[in-house]
Nucleic acid binder design. Structure first.
Lengths: 96, 96
DNA sequence: CGTCAACATAGACAGCTATCGAAGCAGTGC
DNA sequence: GCACTGCTTCGATAGCTGTCTATGTTGACG
């Protein structure tokens, strides 16, 4: 594992290394249609600006994408992340 | 995803959310025999006390186990983590 | 144009964290 | 018992982070 690889992967792990962000990511990933607007998932126990802050971090880490449609902003899991999950399932020998 | 679940999982992600720790974990996991002594993996670009500090964090997160044998201390991936990996491979539908 | 709702940004602050050098502890071997 | 090696712990410090309140921005609707 190279230094560069470890830094990219660590950035993603780090983004998921907060309970609030993990619940937000999980909520987006498991939402019907594969996407959710902020108002759908902002009931995680912190204030609205804090939710926005965490979603920004998840976006910066490359885990989520956002798109504005009218008044609402919709978030969905980045395709590259889904691809990475598929990659893991395809390349892992049997069960570690 | 419950609050409790998210906190446990986030603790593990957070532990892997540092490039140095990720390389250490990777080095242990990919080492012949499934275990490695500190001297085998401590070439990650930081001082030796810092390596020890990171290994402690990985142990506290439940990702690694350590065992002293004579002068050396050996680290290996925790069985529960290996089991969790197997679980993911077994329960994930196809490719996310 | 004015108002309202949905999100984002700015600024501040307490708490955590990664890192180091120095010192301590545990075994080995002479 | 003494010195040496491998690793951990201690103490200090600079930098990051999660949270809040207050304020901006963007679009919808009369």
């Amino acid at each position: 594992m190279t230094v560069e690889e470890s830094e990219t992967a660590a950035r993603m792990f780090k983004a998921l290394g907060d309970p609030v962000r993990l619940r937000l990511f999980s909520a987006v990933a498991s939402h019907p249609g594969g996407e959710a607007c902020v108002c759908d998932i902002s009931d995680v126990g912190v204030s609205q600006p804090t939710v926005s802050h965490h979603l920004k971090k998840l976006k910066e880490a490359g885990l989520l994408l956002s798109e504005r449609r009218g008044t609402w902003v919709y978030y969905r899991v980045a395709p590259s992340v889904l691809a990475a999950m598929g990659q893991i399932l395809a390349t892992t020998p049997s069960a570690a």
